Simulated scan of single mutants.
Amino acid sequence: MLTLSGAKFAAASAVGGRLFRFYWPLLAVIALALSGCMSATTQVAGADPANPSAKVAPVGYRSTVAPYTSLRPAAPAPWRDRNDAVAPRPKQDR
């Protein structure tokens, strides 16, 4: 059928398109008729989002500013003391 449609299109365009302009209403009617035969909905893969009783994962709260520490300039101090204050503690021998 597609081959026949292609042949008709080629013949109509060779003639100058006079024959093809009569096919547009016919094609529109066929498209509307076929769209009326299709199912209105499709099967969704998961739970329907419109269903209020559908089970969903719990929502947890995580603060976006909780690990914030102020980065304002600190008072000058000897660099060795500041370095020792943030260095990891040495492990005890077992």
Rank of each mutant, 00 (worst) to 15 (best):
residue 25 P to M: 03
residue 2 L to D: 14
residue 67 P to Q: 01
residue 91 K to V: 15
residue 47 A to L: 09
residue 13 S to H: 08
residue 86 V to K: 02
residue 7 A to C: 07
residue 94 R to L: 10
residue 20 F to C: 04
residue 74 A to M: 10
residue 3 T to Y: 01
residue 52 P to E: 08
residue 12 A to E: 03
residue 72 R to E: 15
residue 44 V to G: 08
residue 16 G to A: 03
residue 29 V to P: 01
residue 18 R to I: 08
residue 26 L to T: 04
residue 49 P to C: 04
residue 36 G to Q: 07
residue 61 Y to L: 01
residue 30 I to E: 10
residue 8 K to C: 07
residue 89 R to P: 05
residue 78 P to I: 15
residue 92 Q to C: 03
residue 80 R to I: 13
residue 5 S to W: 15
residue 19 L to N: 00
residue 58 P to Q: 04
residue 26 L to I: 09
residue 89 R to Y: 13
residue 88 P to L: 06
residue 35 S to R: 13
residue 40 A to P: 09
residue 28 A to N: 14
residue 54 A to S: 07
residue 29 V to I: 12
residue 38 M to P: 02
residue 37 C to H: 12
residue 9 F to Y: 14
residue 51 N to I: 01
residue 62 R to P: 05
residue 70 S to C: 09
residue 94 R to A: 07
residue 43 Q to S: 03
residue 72 R to Q: 13
residue 40 A to N: 12
residue 75 A to W: 07
residue 84 D to A: 14
residue 16 G to H: 01
residue 19 L to P: 00
residue 12 A to W: 02
residue 19 L to I: 03
residue 42 T to G: 13
residue 1 M to A: 13
residue 13 S to F: 05
residue 62 R to M: 08
residue 2 L to C: 10
residue 53 S to P: 02
residue 31 A to W: 07
residue 31 A to S: 08
residue 20 F to D: 01
residue 64 T to I: 13
residue 60 G to H: 07
residue 5 S to D: 09
residue 9 F to W: 09
residue 35 S to E: 09
residue 81 D to L: 04
residue 70 S to T: 12
residue 87 A to Y: 04
residue 69 T to K: 15
residue 11 A to S: 00
residue 40 A to H: 10
residue 85 A to M: 11
residue 80 R to D: 07
residue 55 K to L: 15
residue 19 L to A: 05
residue 23 Y to P: 01
residue 31 A to C: 07
residue 53 S to K: 08
residue 36 G to H: 01
residue 58 P to I: 06
residue 19 L to H: 06
residue 2 L to E: 09
residue 73 P to F: 08
residue 21 R to F: 03
residue 55 K to E: 13
residue 11 A to L: 02
residue 69 T to N: 04
residue 91 K to P: 14
residue 93 D to M: 15
residue 32 L to G: 08
residue 32 L to Y: 07
residue 37 C to D: 14
residue 59 V to T: 10
residue 70 S to A: 08
residue 21 R to C: 01
residue 57 A to C: 02
residue 38 M to Y: 07
residue 25 P to Q: 00
residue 56 V to Q: 05
residue 60 G to C: 05
residue 58 P to K: 07
residue 50 A to Q: 10
residue 87 A to F: 01
residue 1 M to S: 09
residue 76 P to H: 04
residue 59 V to S: 06
residue 90 P to Y: 01
residue 26 L to H: 04
residue 86 V to Y: 03
residue 60 G to D: 08
residue 22 F to T: 13
residue 55 K to C: 11
residue 40 A to C: 09
residue 49 P to Q: 07
residue 5 S to R: 14
residue 50 A to S: 12
residue 41 T to F: 09
residue 29 V to F: 05
residue 34 L to R: 10
residue 76 P to D: 05
residue 75 A to D: 10
residue 93 D to L: 15
residue 64 T to F: 14
residue 34 L to A: 08
residue 87 A to L: 04
residue 81 D to R: 11
residue 16 G to N: 02
residue 23 Y to K: 11
residue 28 A to L: 14
residue 85 A to N: 10
residue 11 A to N: 01
residue 78 P to A: 14
residue 6 G to N: 12
residue 61 Y to M: 01
residue 86 V to N: 04
residue 86 V to Q: 04
residue 58 P to V: 00
residue 72 R to F: 11
residue 53 S to Q: 11
residue 25 P to I: 00
residue 83 N to Y: 13
residue 82 R to E: 15
residue 81 D to E: 06
residue 69 T to L: 09
residue 73 P to T: 05
